[in-house]
Simulated scan of single mutants.
Amino acid sequence: MTWLLRGVRWMRWYVRELTDESAYDRYVAHVRKEHPAATVPSRRAFERMRTERAESDPRQGFRCC
C-alpha cells in the first residue's frame, strides 16, 4: 500500500510541476522567506501578474494563440 501512495504522490507532484501549478506555492514560500513584512497576493492576483509579465515580454510575441 505504501508503494501505491508513494506513486500517487509522485504523479501528483509531476503533474503539478509539468503544468506549472506549483509556481504559486514556490512564490508564496519565496515572499515569506525573503520579504516577511510584505503581503502575499492572492492566487488570482499572482496569475494576473504572471499573465501581464508574459504578455509584456517581447519574446512572447510569437505565440500562435
Rank of each mutant, 00 (worst) to 15 (best):
residue 3 W to Q: 10
residue 34 E to W: 04
residue 20 D to A: 14
residue 64 C to T: 03
residue 49 M to W: 10
residue 34 E to S: 12
residue 31 V to Q: 14
residue 7 G to D: 09
residue 54 A to N: 04
residue 62 F to R: 00
residue 30 H to K: 05
residue 30 H to V: 01
residue 11 M to K: 03
residue 27 Y to H: 14
residue 7 G to A: 10
residue 55 E to H: 02
residue 51 T to M: 09
residue 33 K to Q: 11
residue 64 C to L: 11
residue 20 D to E: 09
residue 37 A to D: 05
residue 59 R to A: 06
residue 47 E to W: 14
residue 56 S to F: 10
residue 45 A to I: 09
residue 58 P to Y: 00
residue 7 G to R: 13
residue 6 R to K: 11
residue 47 E to K: 15
residue 43 R to Q: 10
residue 57 D to S: 02
residue 17 E to G: 12
residue 38 A to Y: 08
residue 19 T to H: 08
residue 16 R to Y: 14
residue 42 S to R: 09
residue 36 P to Y: 01
residue 53 R to W: 12
residue 30 H to W: 04
residue 36 P to H: 01
residue 62 F to V: 00
residue 18 L to D: 09
residue 31 V to L: 15
residue 29 A to D: 13
residue 2 T to N: 03
residue 54 A to S: 03
residue 56 S to N: 09
residue 30 H to G: 09
residue 50 R to L: 05
residue 19 T to N: 09
residue 8 V to A: 10
residue 3 W to I: 04
residue 23 A to H: 14
residue 16 R to L: 10
residue 18 L to C: 08
residue 51 T to H: 13
residue 52 E to W: 05
residue 32 R to W: 07
residue 41 P to E: 04
residue 45 A to T: 12
residue 37 A to L: 08
residue 63 R to V: 04
residue 35 H to A: 08
residue 56 S to D: 15
residue 25 D to A: 08
residue 10 W to V: 10
residue 47 E to M: 15
residue 62 F to C: 02
residue 17 E to K: 04
residue 15 V to T: 06
residue 49 M to G: 13
residue 33 K to W: 14
residue 3 W to R: 07
residue 61 G to N: 02
residue 27 Y to I: 01
residue 62 F to H: 00
residue 40 V to W: 05
residue 24 Y to R: 11
residue 49 M to L: 12
residue 22 S to A: 05
residue 60 Q to A: 01
residue 56 S to L: 08
residue 52 E to F: 07
residue 25 D to R: 12
residue 6 R to W: 03
residue 10 W to G: 15
residue 36 P to T: 02
residue 20 D to K: 15
residue 2 T to H: 01
residue 43 R to E: 14
residue 34 E to Y: 07
residue 6 R to T: 11
residue 55 E to A: 00
residue 34 E to D: 11
residue 63 R to C: 01
residue 14 Y to S: 06
residue 13 W to N: 13
residue 9 R to V: 09
residue 38 A to E: 14
residue 19 T to P: 03
residue 58 P to E: 00
residue 21 E to A: 05
residue 32 R to A: 04
residue 1 M to L: 02
residue 44 R to V: 05
residue 14 Y to T: 05
residue 48 R to N: 04
residue 58 P to K: 00
residue 24 Y to L: 12
residue 19 T to C: 09
residue 65 C to R: 11
residue 19 T to I: 03
